[in-house]
Design a protein around this nucleic acid. Structure first.
Length: 698
DNA sequence: TCAATCCGTATC
DNA sequence: ATACGGATTGAC
């Protein structure tokens, strides 16, 4: 290989004791070489490396996530690596005595650095993996989240796979050479939205329309996204689509294939494995394909000449990146859209308060169908929480079905499958007889019993009555125990309530893609609902145990419950019945009944504004030991108006919250970054985890 | 007054 | 991690 002649090991070890020689002029490089045999003309040894003639300095982003070292470092490009050292390529450099990976940001003629520069040790690969757009984006994201450039790059650039890199680029698929049909094909699904055609038009003309899109219920949204992507592509630009999970990506992949043909896009998901993932990512990076769809890691996909970013269901908590600096795709895609002058489409059946904020600040337009159109297709939702009467049928009663739910399901099963949404395992702290396991119910209204603590008396979740004198109607036992009712148990009970009807389950561990049965009960946990495509959707849906979701002590409980309900209810046929087991007077239930997530989100945002919670305010959480947090806060120069809440115990650590008015968000991130820098420079032994806009807040 | 040692800081 | 500079300490 080139340059291997000057073996890296040669001349590396200093001769012991040499340091004892009288102080030599510090600037003299020869001080390092053997002092005596000057006579030798130039046998190439390490000290004899020469810099490249043109642009001899490489600015390198070293792979170090220490906050105080979060800046580029300059290295000399040795002449033998001149050709291979291209902007964006991976290199190895000696940094603070050790060899570390780095990426070349650019090559320049000279350095600002006062001291002496080291040489690049080697070029790992000449493949330019870091382009200018992603480099600038990574810097911006690091600043926004008080994190480091290196941490963001670790999320943005997949590990190298040398064999894949060396492969011949795959053949373009048949038909991938022709033009994509753009605006001339008409607005398609966008005709249903008054602002749809103008959104597409702007996109096709190379402008940057930005919309928060409330999609009509039903499966049409995928085709709508595919259409928007096609229009961006026909206009000569690329597109990026981010979905919550692999199942959604697979289905979006199909929709894109139907719209664009094969070979014009790639799907990027975690389950691909390193080789295939790198292969597809490289195809995007090299500009071989210009459309990418994927889960959250795809938010950084280096799509060339980006014209459109799409995020579906931005309220889904799986979008939240679990690795530092915890960037959220909604923020990252918004930053990218801005930077690339690309269009943006943030869509879902519901509205997050964050997306609502984007509309209220004027960053994006609201894109929704007319009320008339919504009313025509929306499910007919009926709350069953106030319908205290359980089904008289014994089996239906055990299955926690109210009379209304039971009747609705029975009738709908004549026409097609029925979806039953149940909370995830562990969400339902139900009570049962301690001896025979019969579910414990309220003596007055038959509602489910619950307990706040192990020694308190059970109380009714529906009517609130204390059931201190409970005894089991089956065996007479006097004590209750906690039970977890998951999807499987519910399925068994439903099977008994509807003899002869097949029952399918779909949950976290075993997710069903789709359901083809003419007639079946489909029990699913939120987010795992299979699509029912035959006949255009489910004939009905039952949303059970809604109080469990609403009762969570979480700032987002209402918003999140509505999101889960609407995502399930959107899978029923137009105007089909949906029964929700919750009190019809509650705001999220009202929003579901009226199919109006926008008004709900606007009210929610107003309330957050009043109490100063995100997204109306910007927050950061600091997690660590009490001493570390105290130290961190005393060293941080927080912006004007910053308010510290806590710290409060959080697991084995403590957590403090810092809250600032929204305009001070940037200043807050900067202050936290500096405080981290000071601590890491001091090698503070206990680290503090900084998370900006954490998803879960008590 | 000098050298050995300690400590903090930068790391190209 | 490790190298370096400046400050500090201890012995002459």
């Amino acid at each position: 290989m080139s340059g291997a002649g000057e073996g890296p090991g040669e001349g590396t070890g200093l001769i012991p004791g040499l340091g004892d020689v009288p102080r030599a002029p510090a600037e003299e490089p020869a001080a390092k070489a053997r002092p005596k045999p000057k006579a030798k003309p130039k046998p190439a040894r390490k000290g004899a490396r020469r810099p490249a003639e043109s642009l001899p300095v490489a600015r390198v982003a070293v792979d170090m996530s220490l906050p105080h070292l979060d800046r580029p470092f300059d290295y000399l490009v040795p002449v033998e690596l001149d050709g291979r050292t291209v902007p964006g390529c991976r290199v190895r450099v000696r940094f603070a005595g050790q060899l570390v990976d780095g990426l070349v940001l650019e090559r320049v003629a000279e350095s600002d650095h006062e001291g002496r520069l080291s040489y690049l040790e080697r070029v790992t690969s000449s493949e330019p993996v870091l382009g200018t757009e992603v480099a600038a984006l990574a810097r911006e994201v690091a600043d926004r989240y008080a994190g480091t450039f290196a941490d963001v790059l670790r999320l943005a650039i997949p590990p190298r796979h040398a064999r894949v890199e060396a492969e011949e680029p795959p053949e373009r698929a048949e038909g991938a050479e022709g033009a994509v049909a753009g605006l001339e094909k008409g607005p398609g699904p966008w005709a249903e939205y008054p602002a749809g055609p103008s959104f597409l038009k702007a996109l096709g003309e190379g402008r940057a329309p930005r919309a928060v899109w409330t999609a009509l219920p039903g499966p049409g949204w995928r085709a709508a996204i595919a259409r928007a992507v096609a229009v961006a592509l026909a206009g000569g630009r690329g597109a990026l689509v981010v979905m919550a999970d692999g199942r959604d990506v697979a289905r979006m992949d199909e929709a894109l294939a139907a719209e664009l043909g094969e070979g014009r896009h790639v799907a990027l998901t975690a389950e691909l494995g390193p080789a295939e993932r790198y292969r597809r990512w490289l195809a995007v990076r090299r500009g071989t394909v210009r459309v990418a769809v994927g889960t959250r890691a795809a938010m950084f996909a280096p799509v060339e000449d980006l014209g459109l970013v799409v995020l579906w269901d931005d309220g889904d908590d799986v979008h939240a990146e679990p690795h530092a600096p915890y960037p959220h795709p909604r923020e990252v895609l918004a930053l990218r859209a801005h930077r690339a002058r690309a269009g943006a489409l943030i869509g879902g059946f519901t509205r997050t308060t964050e997306a609502t904020q984007l509309v209220e600040t004027g960053w994006a337009h609201a894109l929704a169908a007319d009320r008339l159109r919504v009313r025509a297709v929306m499910p007919r939702v009926r709350p069953a929480g106030d319908d205290a009467e359980l089904a008289r049928d014994g089996a239906a009663r055990t299955a926690r079905l109210t009379h209304l739910a039971f009747q609705t399901a029975r009738q709908a099963l004549e026409h097609g499958p029925v979806l039953v949404q149940v909370p995830r395992r562990g969400y339902l702290p139900g009570l049962a007889c301690g001896r025979c396991r019969t579910p414990a119910r309220c003596g007055a209204c038959q509602g489910p019993l619950s307990m706040t603590s192990a020694h308190a008396a059970p109380y009714c979740r529906w009517c609130g009555r204390i059931a201190g004198d409970w005894n089991c109607p089956e065996c007479g036992f006097l004590h209750v125990r906690a039970v977890v009712v998951g999807a499987r148990r519910t399925a068994e009970e439903l099977g008994r309530a509807f003899p002869g009807v097949p029952v399918r389950t779909s949950g976290r561990e075993a997710v069903l893609e789709r359901i083809d049965d003419e007639r079946a009960l489909v029990v699913a946990t939120p987010g795992a609902e299979p699509a029912a495509e035959r006949g255009g959707g489910y004939a009905a849906a039952l949303l059970l145990d809604g109080w469990v979701l609403l009762g969570r002590a979480d700032l987002r409980a209402g918003e999140e419950t509505l999101r889960r309900w609407m995502n399930a209810a959107a899978l029923v046929r137009p105007a089909a019945p949906v029964v929700v087991a919750a009190d019809g007077a509650l705001a999220p239930v009202q929003a579901l009944v009226r199919w109006d997530p926008v008004t709900y989100a606007e009210r929610e945002l107003d309330e957050r504004r009043e109490v100063g919670f995100p997204p109306a305010a910007r927050m950061a959480s600091l997690t660590g030991t009490p001493a570390a947090i105290r130290e961190f806060l005393s060293g941080a120069r927080l912006p004007e108006g910053a308010e510290v809440l806590g710290p409060v115990p959080a697991g084995d650590k403590e957590r403090a919250l810092v809250r600032v008015p929204r305009p001070a968000g940037q200043a807050l991130a900067k202050a936290l970054r500096e405080a981290q820098g000071v601590r890491s420079a001091r090698k503070a032994p206990e680290s503090v985890r900084v998370q900006i806009d954490p998803l879960e807040l008590i």
